[in-house]
Design a protein around this nucleic acid. Sequence first.
RNA 1: CGGGGCGUGGCGCAGUUUGGUAGCGCGUACGGUUCGGGACCGUAAGGUCGGAGGUUCGAAUCCUCUCGCCCCGACCA
Length: 568
Amino acid sequence: MRWSRSFIPTLRDNPADAEFRSHQLLIRGGFVRQLAAGIYSYLPLGQRTVLKIIRIIRDEFDEAGAQEFFLPALHPADLWQETGRWADMGENMFRLKDRFGRDMCLGMTHEEVFTEIARKEVRSYKDLPQIWYQIQTKFRDEARPKSGLLRLRQFIMKDSYSFDVDRAGLDRSYDIHHQLYCRIFTRCGLKFVAVEASSGAMGGSQSEEFMVRTEAGEDFVVSCACGYAANLERAVSRLDKISDEPSSGEPRAVSTPGQKTIAEVADFLKVPPTHQIKSLVYIVADKPCLLLVRGDHQLNEAKLMAAARTVLVRPARPEEIRELFGADAGSLGPVGVRNLPILADPELQGRSNMTCGANKDDFHLQGVTPGVHFKAEWADLRAVQAGESCVQCGKPLEIYKAAEVGHIFKLGTKYSQSMGAVVLDAEGKQVPIVMGSYGIGIERILSSAVELYHDDDGIIWPASIAPFSVIITPVNYKDAVKAAADRLYDELRTAGIDVLLDDRMERPGVKFKDADLIGIPYRVVLGAEKLSKGQAELFNRATRQTELIDINTVPSVVRERLQAGGIR
RNA sequence: CGGGGCGUGGCGCAGUUUGGUAGCGCGUACGGUUCGGGACCGUAAGGUCGGAGGUUCGAAUCCUCUCGCCCCGACCA
């Protein structure tokens, strides 16, 4: 492309409402423009980058024998009603009615539609396994779109689905995807880690997320030098045993006027938070439930969802708590509770002589021993905290922010069962298809690459997803320099290299600044003086190193560099 | 949904407290001088001040309502 004829609207100033570097640079560099909250237009430069990413994904999926589909974005409600997700998706689903008043929605994901095809067309185990994928626009009415292109309401997703006759087949399809994802993210130049994840409302047994470490992300990864890595929603750790004074007899009530928080009670009764029981009331699938964690621990709602096998959880409202316990939050405890289930974190198991609320305002109980003074069902509920010991090696755990660029799930038969997608197996028995579901967020690759690779001057694209591989910058686009630039431009294009020729009548400084901003990996600078000696400058955007090379060798050197970086 | 911030030429901002009919920088167009890291001089175009209603002789400015965007939280297959 010739810059003079391209639409690359770069900006000198950062847009006022962009906070993260990726967001600022993608707008300043003329890659994207915002249309509405969480909805962006991809300008030519952005689109080129998106297409590069998509090409890598297609390349890998096709190579692995997966087949590309293109499914509707507009779905009839009844399909989603079959799996119950019409209700489960709640506010996050864009819903509309057609002219006849029929309920429709915009697809957030495509398990239902793909399963619909499978149940109609796939009859026999001989038709399996299948891996079907598509690259398509998804819609989610996020409560709060944010972080530029990291959390969108309309976004492009590669979603794929595996169909197998049994669990072993699913395991294989899942492993194929795991490998594919590693190859794809590596080819996109990302530094990433695969972590254990919680499957949330998707259902299913096992899932892993592919995470890129960045402050712009919204997930937390718990990781250890030994290789252990998990989403905070799923992570576990090892804690030191706490020795308790043996408790004698029944719990005793003590007056704690106005002492509500763990910290206040710790101060007032001289009982450290580790020796207190934190009592929380949640409404789980419309039923109240008492949740217990150690005083210094935090409840993780994703773990609660996993334990309760429902996504329908919320904290109880103050009036609900009052009605259930006859006391307010801050004076609650498990002792004597009969009217609702109690779920307790295992860190309370085996403890004794603890302190908790008395279910009477301004009173607490001391000398409480879990398992003796109350019975509970045990379930991991607490969030791991940085510095706790790794379960694998005992070293301290680190917690950092990350963006989820991909997620793979073993779904099992949740969808095939509810939708009646069955095949005959080798024994002639009807069995539900065993499914997997796998997603990659295209814009998330785009923005996390920028988060990962930029400097004060702009973006530093990994060559594999850069909108152009090379930019030719003639210092002055005239006379011999112009002729040389034009010739080089033709040569590079002929060599099949994506090249941008900055043929604008701009001062050199402007061209350099713009080239830095849009992040083209290699820049060939042509100036009259060097050219008269038959030389060109090859500038590496990432290292900022310039080398003088014979102008005639530019195409071969550039091609060599790109190939060394894994391009083409 | 709760809390906070912001909407003024294409972009970044001032002006709002104390009402008097809109300004700066960048960008854009034209002319000229420049030309290896966002040049300089001159000229010019471009804004119903997010929208509606109200108060007032007069509203970017005060009041009411409303729409939008950003941030924190809630939420997030």
